[in-house]
Design a protein around this nucleic acid. Structure first.
Lengths: 135, 135
DNA sequence: ACCAGGATCTGGACTTAGTCTAATCGTGAC
DNA sequence: GTCACGATTAGACTAAGTCCAGATCCTGGT
C-alpha cells in the first residue's frame, strides 16, 4: 500500500505525534521515497515549490520522530546523519566512495559470539554496517 | 611492550609516514592511552603543557594516519568522530547515555546470512556496534 | 657552511550541520 | 472573543572540520 498524506496522518497518531501540516509533509517526504535522507535533503524536498517549513522545524520534527521511534538514524557519514524510514529490523551496506546506503534485511542474519553485557546494561540495538567499495 | 616515542617512530616509518615531531606526539597521545579519542581531545592532550601543535595539523595528521591505516575512525556519535588506535580487528559497545566506547574483540564473533555483494563490489570491512544503556 | 626545493606546519578565515531563543501563529476550551 | 498552550519561525549562535597562503623545517648537493 503506497503512503499517502492521509494514511501517514494515522501513522503519526499511532506514534503519539500530533499530526500537523509540517509533520505530515516531512513524514511524506521520507516515507513516500523510502530512502535514507539527510535533514538537508528533507528541508529541500519539503520546500521545493514554495517555502513551507523552516530549518528548525525540520530538525525538531526529525528528532521527535526519532524519539517516538517512527524513524531511525543512521550514522555512517561523519559529516551528516541520515534518517531511515524503514520500520523493519535491518542493517546497512555503505558505499564508502559514493556515500550510498542500502538496506540489508535482518531476517536470516545471526551474530554469534558477542560477549555478555557489563552488569546492569541493556542492549538498545545491534547495528551492522558493511562498508563496500567498487573494486 | 609499552609504547614509547621511539618505538612509535618505527611504527610510523613502517606505515610510510614521515615521523615528524608533531606526528610522533599525536601518535603517542593516542597509542599510549589506548583509548578512543576525538580530534579535540587529542589537540588538548598534545598542547597540555605549552602550545605545540595547531588544530590544522592535528586534523591533517589524523587523516593521514587513517589513510595509511594506522588508526581507524569510529562513527557513532553524530557530533564527532573518534579515532581508534587498536590495530586488531574488533567491534564496539557504545553507551548511548554516556557516549562511552568499549572494544569487543572480533575473534570468536561470526556473522551468518549476509547477502552477496552487488556485482563488482568489495568489502572494506564489517562494523558491528552494540548500543547499550543502563537499565 | 650555504643554498634550493619540497614537505610540513601554522593561524586564522571559512563552511556547514545542528541548536537555541524569543517572538509569533493556530486552535480548541470556555 | 479571549485565554492558554503547543507548534512554527527567522535568525543568531556553536562547534567540528576544512582551506589557504605564508612561514618554517628538513635534506641533499655543492
Amino acid at each position: 500500500m503506497p503512503y499517502t498524506r492521509d494514511n501517514l496522518t494515522e501513522v503519526l497518531r499511532r506514534h503519539d505525534i500530533n499530526p500537523t501540516h509540517q509533520r505530515i509533509e516531512i513524514a511524506y517526504a521520507l516515507f513516500s521515497r523510502g530512502e535514507h535522507l539527510s535533514a538537508d535533503q528533507i528541508l529541500a524536498i519539503v520546500n521545493d515549490r514554495h517555502s513551507e517549513t523552516s530549518k528548525a522545524t525540520v530538525y525538531n520534527t526529525l528528532n521527535l520522530f526519532l524519539e517516538k521511534k517512527l524513524v531511525r538514524e543512521v550514522i555512517v557519514d561523519p559529516s551528516k546523519v541520515f534518517y531511515d524510514p524503514n520500520p523493519s529490523p535491518h542493517h546497512h551496506f555503505y558505499n564508502v566512495d559514493t556515500g550510498e546506503l542500502a538496506d540489508i534485511d535482518a531476517a536470516g542474519i545471526e551474530v554469534h559470539g558477542l560477549p555478555a553485557l557489563p552488569d546492569g546494561m541493556v542492549t538498545e540495538g545491534v547495528d551492522i554496517i558493511v562498508r563496500v567499495r567498487a573494486g
